[in-house]
């Protein structure tokens, strides 16, 4: 072999150095990217942790001035006279959610069954797109519709003097969460294997029997998750409810009497109170309750999903 000229060696060295530096750049970039992603997660976790901590810390201050039993069980909310019973709002939120779900769950499942099992494919695609768009409509628009169309209608048909109240709020929320529940139920129904449907027909079952005895039971946990998610949305909705519920802190379950729930009360009061006051702490405690309810609902969904995955 002939000896390599000095030029050639230099060139090789340069090339190796160049390659090495590119290698270094490439792997530094790789590690940097990983670092950025890790940083995002840590930032996300820290910020959200801070929110939960802050809300609970401020919220728990209320128990310096108000007893636990008064806050949770007394229906008298009158900060000017030192009465901080939040039971009105807690019961209001639970009641409103219950009424909403009673209205919207059967209808949503019905629509989802229609989309997943009955509608022809072209219509199915259109309806799904439509539902996806409806999820994005601002809640305030639903609230506005409720305030301008629904409330006069309720006043006319029930003879209620104001028309604001649980009925109006529940109807507005129902229309609002219907696309959410329907869409997720639809996904759950579509996940049921087609062989099962065919087995039903092979046994001579009708479509109706298939839906009730095969598809719905098989999609049970998915449907439950859909309803819970819709419930979480209904509990947390604020401004649409503010526009139709009447915002009066009074105990009662009459559907057409002005009332108040946790979210609407927080938003209506928070701007008028001093940050260091007991009222403010009580409002933060209500927000913490909302946070806790919503977190436990999601934990329930996770549990359901794990169970559904196992079977």
């Amino acid at each position: 072999m002939e000896k390599q000229s000095p030029d050639w060696t230099d060139a090789m060295n340069l090339l190796t150095a160049h390659r090495q530096s590119r290698w270094t750049v490439k792997y530094t970039a790789d590690r940097f990217f990983r670092f950025l992603c890790l940083g995002s997660v840590i930032f996300l976790g820290a910020v959200l942790g801070a929110i939960v901590l802050f809300v609970s810390e401020t919220g728990f201050l209320v128990f310096r001035d108000v007893s636990l039993s008064e806050f949770f069980f007394s229906p008298h909310w009158d900060p000017e006279h030192g009465k901080y019973g939040a039971a009105v709002f807690i019961a209001g939120t639970l009641y409103l959610t219950l009424v909403t779900l009673l209205i919207t769950t059967p209808i949503s499942i019905c629509v989802a069954v229609f989309i997943a099992e009955i509608a022809p494919p072209w219509l199915r695609q259109w309806l799904r797109t439509l539902l996806d768009l409806l999820v994005g409509i601002p809640s305030i628009v639903y609230g506005y519709l409720g305030a301008t169309l629904l409330i006069p209608w309720i006043r006319e048909h029930t003879g209620a003097p104001v028309g604001d109240g649980f009925l109006a709020a529940a109807l507005v929320l129902s229309i609002m969460i219907l696309p959410t529940i329907t869409r997720i139920t639809d996904d759950a129904l579509c996940a049921v294997p087609n062989e099962w449907r065919e087995a039903n027909y092979a046994l001579g079952g009708t479509t109706f029997q298939m839906i009730v005895r095969v598809v719905l039971p098989a999609a049970k946990s998915g449907i439950a998750a859909a309803v819970i998610l819709g419930m979480a949305r209904a509990i947390g909705e604020t401004m649409a409810v503010v526009m139709v519920i009447g915002n009066v802190a009074q105990w009662g379950f009459d559907l057409v009497t002005p009332s108040s729930v946790l979210t609407s009360h927080i938003v209506m009061q928070i701007l008028n109170v001093d940050f260091q006051s007991t009222t403010n702490h009580a409002l933060y405690m209500m927000a913490l309750l909302l946070l806790m309810i919503s977190i436990s609902l999601i934990m329930l969904i996770r549990r359901l999903r794990l169970k559904g995955g196992a079977s």
Partner: peptide, 18 residues
């Protein structure tokens, strides 16, 4: 993951208060 999923549906009013 659980924490992030839970916080994805926390009522917006809680964030508003923060």
């Amino acid at each position: 993951r659980g924490a992030i999923e839970s916080l994805a549906s926390v009522p917006s009013i809680v964030f508003g208060l923060f």
